[in-house]
Design a protein around this nucleic acid. Sequence first.
DNA 1: GCGTATAATGTAAGCGCTTACATCACGTAA
DNA 2: TTACGTGATGTAAGCGCTTACATTATACGC
Lengths: 346, 346
Amino acid sequence: MTIPRSAPTLNDVAQAAGVSTATVSRCLNTPERVIDSTRERVMKAVQELGYTPNFGARVMAARRTNTIGAIIPTMENAVFARGLQAFQEGLRESGFTLLVASSSYRSDIEEEQIRALVARGADGLLLIGHDRDPAILAYLQAQNIPVLVAWSFDPGALLPSVGFDNRRSMQALADTVIGMGHRRIGVISAITRGNDRARLRLAGIRDAVALAGLGEDAVTVIETTYAIETGAEAFEALMTSQQPPTVVMCGNDVLAVGAMKKARELGLDVPRDVSITGFDDIELASLVDPALTTVHVPHREMGRRAARALIEMVDHGRSVPSEELAANVCMRGSVALPGRDTGATA
Amino acid sequence: MTIPRSAPTLNDVAQAAGVSTATVSRCLNTPERVIDSTRERVMKAVQELGYTPNFGARVMAARRTNTIGAIIPTMENAVFARGLQAFQEGLRESGFTLLVASSSYRSDIEEEQIRALVARGADGLLLIGHDRDPAILAYLQAQNIPVLVAWSFDPGALLPSVGFDNRRSMQALADTVIGMGHRRIGVISAITRGNDRARLRLAGIRDAVALAGLGEDAVTVIETTYAIETGAEAFEALMTSQQPPTVVMCGNDVLAVGAMKKARELGLDVPRDVSITGFDDIELASLVDPALTTVHVPHREMGRRAARALIEMVDHGRSVPSEELAANVCMRGSVALPGRDTGATA
DNA sequence: GCGTATAATGTAAGCGCTTACATCACGTAA
DNA sequence: TTACGTGATGTAAGCGCTTACATTATACGC
């Protein structure tokens, strides 16, 4: 067996098998149109040469890639990782390959990645959230490529989505908390700029506050990046202020876990001295002590449905109605009635 | 502005700008070779048409994709997610795009993904671990495509690697544990089939046992899939056996956290009643109570170095020496001297 | 003004594949 | 035997791009 200088081509296979390139191509794509004896000969040559069709060439000739692209903010966020894993499994069943890229929460990188994926011939795209420069939307439209949004449900948006109502879900949680008597609410939010999930969750808290007839100054908001440590810092800032909150509502579980960690360090008992809530219901939420009150998001289900919806769009070239999934409040040990005092320990 | 039937091509741009396709191509690839006035005209046309070069065609003509492919077992494992994020950032700085696929720990899917990535013209590949069907190795060699292995250092393997010595690191941890007096060791390992990291970690424990002159029956091994819940189940099985171990060493932190959770449910105090160890040092390890004794793996550093090494291989077409990173034992609260009793609570 | 070096642009040949269409080899019916 | 239908295979034209090479424009020195 000789080692080829470079990857073998269709032509090499054709020569080895003593047929034309068309026959080889047919063996690979429509085997039933080739007589058995020939096919065997060709397949043998394919095996021996270790031939893999050149994707670029194939795409260019056939105008279809069976590839779906997805762009997520970061792979380090467990919620995306989980949803995407399910998404990929769903695609695989239908013969699609998933290509993933991440944007580090930066819209310029997201745009770059969108272009990269489109250029690679992605048949469809999965994007996270609706906040996006109109120019990119126009570009996507010009490319005439199906795009689905996940993790955020918004029937009024330009793009169809599979997700949940971040605003209403967070409001439900805030309603409950306020209903328990909390009047000073600290909020640790993810950066809202370019992130509708974060923005809407914050809006949900404000909705609840307004509904309860509380003043705007009932909430103190700190925005910070996604990490346990930054959550801890924000928590400390909130709790060492003049009038510390009796409950700290966090934009996601990771920030909340950071808050709980810092509470322990500060000698604050959760939930006696201060209540803490999260959002997402990642595994971590039920592992910490006390278990974290949060909003459960069905990430896997979302991934599966997104796969189904996007395949539908790609296969039949038609848009698809947005799908809303339920995200329910999950009461656990980290929330209690507010104490009589100001929330500081003795 | 008219909506094009399909994506605009180089030719469309050339026509719109009144130049040849070669000039447009040069504007995009070697702008300094085109006079300003022409370039402006061309770029304007590019903008207006929303032109994106067709990747397949470009690759076919230029024989280079600036794309690196990576295949990981699963995105849901935080260690891969973190290392890969760093890997991607490293690649981006050098103008490479990362394409990620996951194999669900199945070698047949991994092979499929390897072929998919190769077919897509990946200039290089990042793979996890050395366990792999020789046929795929041969295929990769025939394709003459640079491949780097991460998460496992093995200077003797066919492929160069950037990683740590799973066996020796785990042995170091086991040495320490045995040095503290533990004589009955329960092991919760990830599935070892096709997973050299799991296999080598287990081997490291056996090395330590042999070195200490203990019999083989000092260790009881349970293999299970990667999840908190399966770790919990395995832990229960170990602890309800006739002679429960005084220490349970887990193949990774996720299994260890599952074990700790189950310990709490069983009313066992960690580390008084039983010691528990992990591997990886994910964030979770220092969040649980007591903090988990584990082996710290520098995932980010590994990702960065892997990026550098693979780029070197791709750019200069030469192989690269394997790099070993240190993975150090991290003693924390979950390990203590064994009690006098059998490990069962009163 | 002319010749020449140099910069800017155009021309056209592929890159590896698919596929419409042409060709060929049979088998069947008249 | 001939004519023709059918199925297997070959031929060759692109797909959109890059790039070696050819051509044309510009600048400069004499």
